[in-house]
């Protein structure tokens, strides 16, 4: 018998599934290196960044979680950033 949570390949998918189901974030990348879980991606608010981390921790079976998720800027573009399509 193998504890699948000890196999990084399966652990990644367990965490991704939990993040999708509980934090409803589908675009978060999960990597496991040397027993440590890394979360990367972009979300809309700091609250959702925290939600992603909480969901990941709940599925990480005690592995340390490093939250590298970024919060998307919502600044408005200035006129110089308009794209002219011709």
């Amino acid at each position: 018998m193998t504890r699948t949570e000890d196999v990084p390949h399966y652990l990644v998918e367990h965490i991704r599934a939990r993040v999708a189901e509980e934090a409803h974030e589908l675009g978060v990348q999960v990597d496991v290196r040397e027993g440590k879980v890394y979360l990367r991606g972009r979300v809309m608010s700091s609250e959702r960044r925290r939600d992603v981390e909480e969901a990941a921790r709940a599925a990480a079976h005690g592995h340390p979680v490093c939250n590298e998720v970024s919060v998307v800027s919502s600044r408005e573009p200035d006129e110089g950033e308009q794209e002219r399509l011709s």
């Binding site: 972009r42 919502s74 600044r75 408005e76």
Partner: peptide, 21 residues
């Protein structure tokens, strides 16, 4: 997609067909 733009929205300027060169 907002995370791709990294800003609130993008603005694209298009010429109407009748005025295109």
């Amino acid at each position: 997609a907002l995370p791709v733009l990294g800003q609130a929205y993008a603005v694209y300027c298009l010429e109407p067909a009748a005025t295109r060169a």
